[in-house]
Simulated assay, not measured.
Amino acid sequence: MFRLGYVAAGFLALIAVIMGAADSPSVAAYYSSFESRIGYWLLLGNTRHCGLYEKGALSPFPITKAQRKMEEKLYTRLGLGSGKLLDASAGSGYVAMYMAFKGFDVQAIDITPHHLQDARKNVKANGLESKVAVDYGDYHNLTSFAPEPFDGIYTMETFVHADNPEKVLSNFYRLLKPGGVLGLHEADFSRNSEKLQDVLRLSHCQNTLEEGGYERLLSKGGFNEYSIEDLTDEVLPMWRLFGIVGYVPYQIFKVFGIENRFINVMAGVEVWLNWGNGRYISVRAIKP
């Protein structure tokens, strides 16, 4: 695994020198970059979210099992027995499929073309076309949906990409039925820095909320019942893996001044080195 990571890093370095990188990429550009696509494929099996582990666990393997546990956690936090869900930025569709296997009907949306292709392919391969609909959709503009069609709405590490978090939350509120549940598995931070802002900007997460921001946003958005669960310790094994695998390539990239062209390597190492400056949280809110 480590040797594979270093070989991949060397190849990516050559690509970066040739191709360059955007200073402020869009969400689609970030996920469509060669580094993102090869990295998610090599390390995460093309699933675009963290795994959930027992506190104190050292090994991140098997990663796919931990990712299913994270999906189970989101399902449990939603606390819904059945109904219709909106997966607001579905990636390759793994979370939507998990929810479908639990009995839900899922409307999955995304704005990245290859995500939509992957999700449709995965849904079809698992025989879930009648349970999961995959369509282009931007959670900043959900006017194509009538008010209150969903029993639940969730994001899995994608609300951090919102250009306008308040508008997105307002859209979610409009689409939830009374008593409907919003589930967000996301990140916030307690200590800001220039390096953190570089990481957030290059991964199009520049509006990531500071600690306490979700409480204020939910209250302002009309949600009067909400809870936040800190899962930071339970995602550490995966981020430790990112930090260890990426450390040497990251130092090499820094020598040549090209570290900003490898945002996932940068993020993996910097988050690991500065563990404790941010949190991975599970947010649950109910529409009155």
Rank of each mutant, 00 (worst) to 15 (best):
A21Y: 10
M156Y: 09
M97V: 00
L175Y: 04
S219Y: 07
A119V: 03
L236T: 03
H185G: 09
D138F: 07
V134H: 02
W275R: 06
A57E: 10
P149I: 11
G103Y: 10
G152V: 05
V199G: 03
T158D: 12
M156R: 07
T143L: 11
S227T: 13
R68I: 12
I63S: 07
F242R: 04
D163Q: 13
A16I: 00
A96H: 05
E259V: 01
A162G: 08
G212M: 07
Y226E: 06
L218P: 01
G152H: 08
Q67K: 15
A133Y: 02
N164M: 09
A187H: 12
I286Y: 02
V245T: 03
N260F: 05
K131W: 07
N141D: 15
I258D: 08
L231F: 14
W41V: 02
I281L: 13
A90Y: 00
G56A: 08
P147D: 13
R48I: 09
Y173H: 15
L116C: 04
T155M: 11
M238I: 14
A162M: 08
G137M: 00
M97K: 05
G93K: 00
R174E: 06
G152F: 00
L196V: 09
L85M: 12
A90H: 02
V132Y: 01
A146E: 15
F223Q: 06
N164I: 09
W239T: 06
S282E: 07
T64C: 06
S170Q: 12
Y53N: 03
F253K: 04
A21Q: 09
L116N: 02
